[in-house]
Amino acid sequence: MKPENTSERFIVSSSPHIHEGSSVERIMLDVLIALTPALAAACYFFGFDALRLTAVCTATSIATEWLCRVMMRRNRSIGDLSAAVTGVLLALNLPPSLPTWMAVLGSIFAIGICKQIFGGLGYNVFNPALAARAFLLISFTGMMTSWSDSDWSATLTLNEGVIDIATGATPLGAIKDAVKAGREIPGFTLAGVARLFIGDTNGCLGETSVFALLIGAAYLLYRRVITWHIPAAYTATVVIFATVLYCVNPQTSVMPHIHLLSGGLVLGAFFMATDMVTSPVTKRGMLIFGVGCGVVTMVIRTVKTGAYPEGVSFAILFMNALTPLINRGCRNRVFGAKS
């Protein structure tokens, strides 16, 4: 399969003989570029920890990828940058205070178990970064849910005027705690919403700054690396779900825009759910995939007794598992077929 033209010999291949010029490397590079604003925001808000975790995850991912390929005696694939993308995405999905060794473990799990065991890029069935996050979350629930101290909770409004929120909680965590304890749901001031949008709050490295993520997402859409279908279906479902809940029971639920801005929704909808390998190939399939992600996310987020305040990664993983079936059921109509 190596095309070489050493002598006067022509290259012979099947048609087509020309190509638009895209490549896997370019797509991965675009994703990396698109993640830069989020990374910068993470560095701004979380300081050295952001740099530390990103560097560790990326380096470990690349090293694991290299090692796996060497052990499997396959061609090296670091050049396609997919390992780097996985590393950065995983780092953005980790809390800033996570010990380095856990990040290393997660990266090895992501590349080794979730990707290379299946044969490498294209063969994996679950998004490696998300699977690694879920793995860490289940194994080290404590470390994965302890957050640095941001004073974001000062922006909450409570009718009783008592702010009774443990420091080091994420907005979603605080809401879930309140719901579980049967307390009043905190309201968000305009300033609070603005801080959620900018990213000055508790949460995983990359998920807090919706603003930075949207810049990257716009770039991805512009470069046509992703299409609007999955993010739109995903966010729309979340909004509709939250609106209905809020209308039915405003006491125990928050406004839809809080759901949109908090947690890993934007990161998940634009960067994780759109992972090409593990999402459907047809547009109709993508819409179904997005809706499914939205529903599962909201179920995990809002059901009172649920163990986790945030459901984006589990929702996407769950839909990853359904992707082959969606692909199977959502093929396009073949030209000339009776409708």
Binding site: I113, C114, I117, F118, V125, F126, A131, A134, F135, I138, V296, V299, I300, V303, T305, G306, A307, Y308, G311, S313, F314, A315, L317, F318, N320, A321
Partner: peptide
């Protein structure tokens, strides 16, 4: 391995219903 990862994906539902 796949079954294990699938099980991981289902973990998100834990606790939703006792």
């Amino acid at each position: 391995v796949t079954a294990g990862l699938l099980s991981l994906a289902f973990m998100g539902f834990s606790g939703i219903v006792k």
